[in-house]
Structure formats: C-alpha cells, structure tokens
Deep mutational scan, measured.
Amino acid sequence: EETYEVDGEEQLKKVEKMLRDRNLDVEVEIHNGKFVIRAK
C-alpha cells in the first residue's frame, strides 16, 4: 500500500491518474484540508 499527501485538486488529479494508470485501487480522503491518497 502506498500513501500520498497532496495539497490542492490539481496535484490530486495528477497523482490519482498516475496510480490508476498502474491499475491500482485508489481511495481519497481529506485530512486537515489535505488530500490523502491511498493506493493498493
């Protein structure tokens, strides 16, 4: 499992696309105004 923490939606979209391109399962949560992306 990998976890990424990003600020802002633009970064979120980039990271999310990169992970989905690797066929990973992606979950996004918001913690303290930051996006936390978990990939399995």
Rank of each mutant, 00 (worst) to 15 (best):
D25S: 12
T3W: 15
D25L: 14
M18Q: 05
E10H: 06
D25W: 14
Y4F: 08
D21T: 06
E27R: 12
M18L: 09
L24N: 02
D21Y: 09
D25G: 08
K13F: 11
E16A: 14
V26Q: 01
G8V: 06
V15W: 10
T3D: 03
K13L: 10
R20E: 03
L19I: 05
V15H: 02
Q11G: 08
L12I: 04
V15F: 10
K34D: 02
I37Y: 02
E27D: 08
K17M: 10
G8P: 03
E10Y: 08
V36T: 06
H31M: 12
E5H: 10
Y4E: 03
Q11H: 05
F35G: 00
N23E: 07
E10W: 09
D7V: 13
G8C: 15
V15Y: 11
E2K: 08
K40C: 14
L19C: 14
M18I: 07
R20I: 05
D7G: 05
D7A: 09
E5Q: 07
D7L: 11
E9T: 09
G33F: 00
F35D: 00
E9R: 09
R20Q: 05
E29I: 13
E1D: 11
V26A: 05
K17E: 07
I37P: 00
Q11E: 14
D21I: 09
K14E: 11
E27V: 14
R38Q: 02
G33T: 00
K17D: 04
L12R: 10
R22S: 04
K40D: 03
V36W: 08
K14G: 04
E2S: 07
R38E: 00
H31W: 12
K40H: 10
R22C: 15
G8K: 05
M18V: 03
V36A: 02
N23K: 08
R38V: 05
G33N: 06
D7H: 10
E1V: 14
V6D: 03
E29V: 12
K40N: 06
M18S: 05
A39F: 12
R38H: 06
K40W: 14
N32A: 04
E16L: 15
R38G: 01
R22W: 09
K40E: 01
G8H: 08
L12C: 15
L24H: 05
E9I: 14
E10I: 07
V15R: 02
G8D: 15
I37K: 01
R38K: 10
D7P: 05
G8T: 15
L19E: 00
V28P: 00
N32F: 07
E10N: 05
F35Y: 12
V6W: 05
K34N: 04
L12F: 09
V26I: 12
D21K: 10
G8Q: 06
E27H: 12
K17Q: 11
L24T: 02
E5L: 12
R22G: 03
V26K: 01
R20H: 06
E29P: 01
V36G: 00
E16Y: 15
R22T: 03
L12Q: 02
M18E: 05
V26H: 04
I37R: 00
K13I: 10
G33C: 14
L19H: 01
T3K: 10
E10M: 07
N32D: 10
E29D: 06
N23T: 03
I30A: 08
I37L: 07
K40R: 13
I30S: 09
E29Y: 14
R22K: 07
N23P: 01
K13R: 13
H31P: 02
I30V: 11
V28Q: 00
H31T: 09
Q11T: 09
D25F: 14
E27W: 14
E1L: 12
T3C: 15
E2M: 12
V6F: 06
E10K: 05
A39P: 04
N23I: 02
F35V: 06
R38F: 07
K14H: 09
E5M: 11
N32P: 02
D7N: 08
G33H: 07
K13W: 13
G33R: 01
M18A: 08
R22F: 06
R38L: 04
Q11D: 12
L19W: 04
L24V: 06
A39S: 07
V6I: 10
R22P: 01
D7R: 09
F35T: 04
